[in-house]
Design a protein around this nucleic acid. Structure first.
Length: 583
RNA sequence: CGGGACGUGGCUCAGCCUGGUAGAGCGCUUGGUUUGGGACCAAGAUGUCGCAGGUUCAAAUCCUGUCGUCCCGACCA
């Protein structure tokens, strides 16, 4: 390709509406342009990278035994209602109406569609296992699109769905995808790691996310360097001991705490109740019903854990400024936040979730459900009707690893892939069953596996850049080689040699862009570094006169190479770079 | 949805506080000089100052509303 014939609108200055470096470089290198918030046009260089990432994914999916299909982007809403996710997805699901006012959904993911296919087409155990995948556009009505392609309204995703006849089979399918993902990200030049993950609205009971470490990521990952334990903060646990039990027997005692409405205030003079001897009482509205959540005063609630444990589709803190909440929750309890507790006056139909760390604790202090009063000598077991004990707290850095007791750390990361073992959630609801060897009907056991292709592209930039621009791994670079003649007159020595090298390298199967623009060298060098071609070959009259070309790996040192050795040297370099990314 | 910031030429921004009819750099066009790290000189083109109201003799500037963008939070496979 000739630079002058394609379209690479580079920007010298950083666009004002791009905050993180990968987003800035996407725009500056001319890979994409924004149409509006969360919607981007892929320009030639961006599209080439996207296609390459997608093809690496295809190769590894195929290698793992998955088979490619293409499902409709427009989906009937009745299958979403059947799976129960029409409500669960809520506003994240784009809905459109046809001329008959019938409602349709724009594909955010395709469990319903593929399960419908399986229900219709897979009926005998002999047809299993199967793993269908597709690479295509997905739509989600994100509350807040951000960071360019990282969280967009429309994005490219690879989604795969496995169908097995047994739990063991499903685990094997899961493992194959897990291994394929590891290879995919390695081939994209990414340093990735897998973490235990919450399953959220997708459902299922076993899940890993593939993460790219990056300060700009939207996920907090808890990890242990000693034993390789790693989990999303939404899922992570730690080996902290339970709250120490003290002497039993003292009766609950009410005491006045005028104006004290925070854990911190109660921990100070004159009360001096340490936060770790307080019970934090939170009121949530979960699927329109109030519930109490109890955690220790020095802990933070992990809402994802609560959502998972309670099975609620929607949950939020009760809001004193909301009249309905006020009546439903706070009036019923008899107090406002700051004086809440679970000892007295909790309506008998309310669920009370308590964090495991409080189990067995006594000598605790909590709100009295009377404004301006607290209770001391509270025993969780004796004085509070806990309906469910569960892990609800958020892990913090420095706590002991749940597996090996060494110190846990926390870092930010970008989620690029997610694998789920789904079980029979969808197959049961959408009636995907099969007959086994004995003629018994059973629901298919499913898994689903996603990779954010556009997000992965941006993650590659986020992980691979320097002050001059992008550092593409050779496997995904828009072109592997940029030929840069410093004089472009057709009969000049640099241009003639460039044409010759272009022909030879292209016929050798390499991807080459020839910068034939009549621009000053500085402009061409800067642009090639900004766009990030892995290897630049500089062709100037001076070096050609010495029988040399300039060999400049992106991010490396320039070295002269004899003209007669140039093609072989370049091919060898590209092969070596490819070998580094092979798995 | 809550909090914050910002909307001025294709891009980055100044001008707004203190109202007087719009600027710079980059980019673009033409001509010339240049030619190894985002050149220089000259001449040009490009703006209903996001939109709608209001105040005023007069609004980019002040007020109200609205739309959009970005950031934080909430939310989010």
């Amino acid at each position: 390709m000739r630079w002058s014939q394609t379209f690479i609108p580079t920007l010298k200055e950083t666009p004002a509406d791009a905050e993180i470096v990968s987003h800035q470089l996407l725009l500056r290198a001319g890979l994409v342009r924004k149409l509006t918030g969360g919607l981007y046009t892929f320009l030639p260089m961006g599209l080439r990278v996207l296609t390459k990432v997608a093809n690496i994914i295809r190769q590894e999916m195929d290698r793992a035994g998955a088979i490619e299909v293409a499902m409709p982007l427009l989906q009937p809403v009745d299958i979403w209602q059947a799976s129960g996710r029409y409500e669960a997805m809520r506003d994240a699901l784009y809905k459109v109406k046809d001329r008959a006012q019938k409602e349709w959904a724009l594909c955010p993911t395709a469990e319903e569609v593929i399960t419908t296919l399986a229900a219709n087409e897979l009926s005998s155990y002999k047809q299993f296992p199967k793993n269908f995948y597709q690479v295509g556009t997905k739509f989600r009505d994100e509350i807040r699109p951000r960071f360019g392609l990282m969280r967009a309204k429309e994005f490219v995703m690879k989604d795969a769905y496995s169908f097995d006849t047994s739990d063991e089979g499903a685990m094997a399918s899961y493992r194959k995808m897990y291994d394929a993902y590891t290879r995919i990200f390695a081939r994209c030049g990414l340093r990735s790691f897998a973490v235990e993950a919450d399953t959220g609205i997708i459902g299922g009971n076993h899940s890993h996310e593939f993460m790219i470490p990056a300060e700009t990521g939207e996920n907090d990952v808890v990890y242990c360097e000693a034993c390789n334990y790693a989990a999303n903060i939404e899922k992570a646990t730690s080996g902290l001991p339970k709250t120490a039990a003290r002497e039993l027997g003292a009766p609950v005692e009410k005491f006045a705490t005028p104006g004290v409405v925070t854990i911190e205030a109660l921990s100070k003079e004159p009360y001096k109740v340490p936060a770790n001897r307080q019970i934090k009482t939170l009121v949530y509205i979960a699927d329109s019903k109030p519930v109490l959540i109890l955690i220790r005063g020095d802990d933070q609630l992990n809402e994802a854990k609560f959502m998972a444990k309670s099975g609620a589709v929607e949950a939020r803190p009760a809001d004193v400024k909301n009249a309905a909440d006020l009546a439903l929750a706070f009036t019923a309890l008899g107090a406002l936040p700051g004086s809440l507790g679970a000892v007295h006056q909790v309506p008998s139909d309310w669920k009370v979730y308590a964090d495991e760390r409080l189990r067995g604790a006594n000598d605790m202090t909590t709100g009295a459900n009377e404004d301006g009063f607290h209770l001391r000598n509270v025993s969780l077991e004796r004085d509070i009707r806990v309906t469910e004990w569960c892990d609800l707290r958020t892990v913090t850095a420095g706590e002991p690893c749940p597996k090996c007791a060494q110190t846990l750390k926390i870092r930010r990361a970008i989620e690029v892939g997610h694998v789920f073992k789904l079980g029979t959630k969808y197959s049961e609801k959408l009636n995907a069953t099969f007959l086994d060897e004995k003629g018994q009907r059973a629901p298919v056991v499913m898994g689903c596996y996603g990779i954010g292709v556009t997000r992965t592209l941006q993650a590659i930039i986020e992980q691979g850049h320097d002050k001059d621009g992008i550092l593409w791994p050779v496997s995904v670079a828009p072109y592997q080689i940029c030929l840069t003649p410093l004089v472009v007159a057709p009969d000049s020595a640099p241009m003639k040699l460039a044409e010759q090298l272009y022909a030879e390298l292209t016929s050798a199967g390499l991807e080459v862009i020839l910068d034939d623009r009549d621009d000053r060298p500085g402009v061409k060098f800067k642009d090639s570094e900004l766009v990030g071609f892995p290897l630049r070959i500089g062709l100037g009259e001076k070096s050609i006169a010495k029988g040399e070309v300039e060999f400049k790996p992106r991010g490396g040192e320039l070295q002269p190479v004899k003209i007669e050795d140039a093609v072989a040297t370049i091919i060898a370099w590209v092969k070596a770079e490819q070998a580094k990314l092979a798995i």
